[in-house]
Write a protein that binds this DNA or RNA. Structure first.
Length: 481
RNA sequence: GGCCCCAUCGUCUAGCGGUUAGGACACCAGAUUUUCAUUCUGGCGGCCGGAGUUCGAUUCUCCGUGGGGCUACCA
């Protein structure tokens, strides 16, 4: 039975890079009909915050990435928060066992002393490896220090002469590290909580994780974890390290590259399916050339070996294209709900009071092809919500040249003699008439009318726009010509 | 500095010894559209460098170069 996990630490909002890791774990789980576990790695008590955990949960839910086990859904392999496992004494127990077997030892250096060690090594341009000074202590000395209440950590002892630690990465093939260069790393901090490498291994064993799919930034942790598995006597899971997501400057995607959390993308009006689809193509590609893929299709054709090894730059342009692609086939009815939260107050007030829901839907149908992200709706809908002053502003912003007044007058005269509602087909008919009478080209007739009536040089289908605007609005605007 | 990973159009990528090096985004041009957008067609544009292996290297090996990651009692 395949069991995979996504293990974010709640020290920030759900990051776009984490999402991709979550996505590949999700797809892999579905593909192999296995179980997907969410584990919150909140052992950094300082930086972990409940609101970040909430943001992560929210984001995953919004994206439609559902988990089989986790703090929010339960499961038989809990607790699903590392902090809660600490209380159970699990890590302490394993560490004590290591201590008893001399696989680990107490260390008493202060962080200042360790900083000095590092600085010295750097000054001599030597690779830094922990000095093992505490390993040289006699048992009596250790007992004495412990008895005196001196703060201590527990360090894992890298086995002497262990040689190369080789991980057979599912994506990269064999990756090898010299054990001697690893240094005896801390497994239990002075406050009794486990460090990342230790907690991960203990948890993954406890949760019977079979495949660890995570970011490439964890690749150098892998040999330490392999060693811990050996020490515990457990079989290590398969590892797969995904290429990292880069900013436009080729460095790891971070704050300075702009939006990086899922909630920001949501707030900017990206659709979850578009985001998922785009992310799925960042570092992975199907065997054929299809690119627009639903989550189900993704699961159907996903192949972990098709994941590429090199880092991928996050390309907002392609995401934009994809988002527009996902907006286009939506029904106006669905779109209305999606778009409503993005209407600004003024636009919303006018739009909803001026037009019936049916008309609102007609307008959405008319403009939806022009949307890249949801907030674009404000720009599109403004054609229909402009007040007279706003219309004038729009108009003055243009360089209309001289409008053929003959066309405008003819059109205005026609509108003037209409007594009731204006219909699209009638508008088309008048325009045809004007075309014949003036012997001008379509562009020469329709463009001026559009400009005179909407203040804009372009927009959706003219006759439909004008009929939606209505007789009174058109008259008010046309009477100044 | 050390360790590790990576390297095909500007970007995301296909390629797994012999291909006119394929697709997508972006860009440019044309067609359609009253305009914009959509859509369609076409175009521009790429194997980091050097050795080696081979009849033949984008592909395999080595060395450079370049980029990235890690280098905590963070995860």
């Amino acid at each position: 039975m395949t069991r995979v996990r996504f293990a974010p630490s709640p020290t920030g909002n759900l990051h776009i890079g984490s999402v991709r890791t979550a996505l590949f774990n999700w797809v892999f789980a579905k593909k192999s009909k296995g179980t997907l576990v969410l584990r919150i790695e909140d052992t950094d008590l300082e930086r972990s915050k409940p609101e970040f955990e909430a943001n992560i949960l929210e984001g995953l839910h919004w994206l439609g990435l559902d988990f089989d086990e986790g703090p929010h859904v339960g499961g038989n392999y809990g607790p699903y928060r590392q902090s809660e496992r600490i209380g159970l004494g699990v890590y302490q127990r394993v560490a004590d066992e290591f201590l008893a077997k001399k696989l680990a030892y107490y260390a008493f250096e202060t962080s200042e002393e360790l900083d000095k060690e590092r600085l010295d090594a750097e000054a001599k341009s030597l690779p830094y490896v922990y000095s093992r000074n505490s390993l040289k202590l006699t048992e009596a000395e250790v007992s004495e220090k412990l008895a005196s209440g001196m703060p201590y950590v527990i360090r894992f002892r890298i086995p002497d002469g262990r040689g190369a630690v080789v991980t057979n990465d599912l994506i990269r093939g064999p990756v090898s590290f010299e054990a001697d260069l690893l240094g005896d790393f801390v497994i239990l901090k002075s406050d009794g909580t486990p460090t990342y490498n230790f907690a991960v291994v203990v948890d993954d064993i406890a949760m019977e994780i079979t495949h660890v799919i995570r970011g490439e930034d964890h690749i150098s942790n892998t040999p330490r974890q392999e060693l811990l598995y050996e020490a515990i006597g457990a079989k290590a899971p398969e590892f797969a390290h995904l290429p990292i997501i880069l900013g436009p400057d080729r460095s790891k995607l971070s704050k300075r590259h702009g939006a990086q959390s899922v909630s920001e993308y949501r707030d900017q009006g990206y659709l979850p399916d578009a985001l998922v689809n785009y992310l799925s193509l960042l570092g992975w590609s199907p065997k054929d050339t299809r690119e627009l893929l639903s989550k189900d299709e993704l699961v159907a054709i996903f192949e972990i070996h098709q994941i590429s090894k090199s880092g991928a730059i996050f390309d907002i342009e392609k995401l934009n294209w994809m988002n527009a692609h996902y907006i286009r086939p939506l029904s106006p009815f669905v779109l209305l709900d999606l778009v409503r939260p993005f209407l600004n107050d003024k636009q919303k007030a006018v739009f909803e009071s001026k037009y019936t829901q049916e008309t609102q839907l007609t307008i959405l149908e008319l403009v939806k092809d022009s949307l890249t992200v949801l907030p674009d709706i404000n720009r599109e809908v403004s054609i229909f919500t402009d007040s007279y002053d706003e219309y004038l502003e729009q108009y003055n912003g243009l360089e209309p040249g001289h409008l053929p007044m003959e066309v405008i007058r003819k059109f205005r005269d026609w509108v003037t003699q209409i007594s009731a509602e204006i219909y699209e087909i009638d508008i088309d008919a008048v325009i045809d008439e004007i075309l014949v009478e003036t012997k001008l080209g379509k562009g020469k007739v329709m463009r001026p009318i559009r400009m005179a009536c909407t203040g804009r040089a372009s927009g959706p289908l003219l006759s439909r726009v004008l009929s939606l605007l209505g007789r009174d609005c058109l008259l008010e605007r046309l009477k100044r010509f």
